[in-house]
Amino acid sequence: MIRVLQADITDLRVDAIVNAANESLLGGGGVDGAIHRRAGPDLLAACRRLPEVHPGVRCPTGEARITGGFSLPARFVIHTVGPVWHSGVSGEAELLAACYRNVLDIAHAQSL
C-alpha cells in the first residue's frame, strides 16, 4: 500500500523513504543531507560501496539505488536522481518519469 503523508521524512517508521539524491550518493544539502545525518555514518559507508558507473557517479539521473535505513526508522532508503530543469527541452520530463518508474520497480522487487 502506498500512502502520502506530510511529515519529516526522517521520522517516518515505514518500509522505505525516497531520497532525492545527487549522482554521487554521498550526501548533500536539504533533505538529502538531513537523511544522511539522521541515518548516520553507515548510510554514507553503504553508498560508498555502491559501484561508480562513471567517475563520481553511483546513480545516474533517472535511475535509483537502494540502501538500508540504518539509524532511520525507515528500513530502506531508495535514492533517485532527478534531472536539472533546462526549460523542459533536454529530456527532463522523461528523466523524471524514469525516476518514479525505477523507484517503484525497486520497491516492487523488494516486496515493499
Rank of each mutant, 00 (worst) to 15 (best):
V18L: 01
P51N: 06
N102C: 13
E94L: 14
H54P: 12
A98G: 15
A16G: 02
S90V: 14
A39Q: 01
I66T: 06
V14F: 01
P51A: 05
A107G: 10
S111Q: 12
A107V: 06
A16V: 00
C59Y: 00
L26Y: 06
H36Y: 04
D105F: 06
I9R: 01
A93C: 15
H54E: 14
I106Q: 04
L25M: 09
G68F: 00
G69V: 06
A64T: 09
R58E: 10
S87A: 14
I35S: 03
S24L: 02
N19A: 04
A107H: 06
A16I: 00
I2D: 11
R49D: 13
L104W: 13
V89T: 15
A93M: 13
G27V: 07
L72R: 02
Y100M: 15
L12H: 01
P55G: 07
S24E: 10
H54I: 08
P55H: 04
D42K: 03
P73Y: 07
A97M: 13
R37S: 11
Q6Y: 03
E63Y: 07
L72C: 07
M1K: 02
S87L: 12
D32C: 11
M1H: 05
P55I: 00
V89N: 15
T10D: 02
N22A: 03
V84S: 11
A107P: 07
V81C: 09
A64N: 09
V89L: 15
R3E: 14
H108P: 06
R75F: 02
A34S: 10
A109P: 05
E52Q: 05
H108T: 14
T80N: 10
P73T: 09
I17A: 01
L95C: 14
V84T: 13
G33Q: 09
G27P: 06
P55T: 03
E52S: 02
G62K: 08
V4D: 03
A74D: 12
C47I: 03
A93V: 14
A74K: 03
P60K: 06
L72T: 05
E23A: 13
A98T: 14
A98W: 10
A7V: 02
T10G: 02
P51T: 03
H36D: 06
E94C: 14
D42E: 11
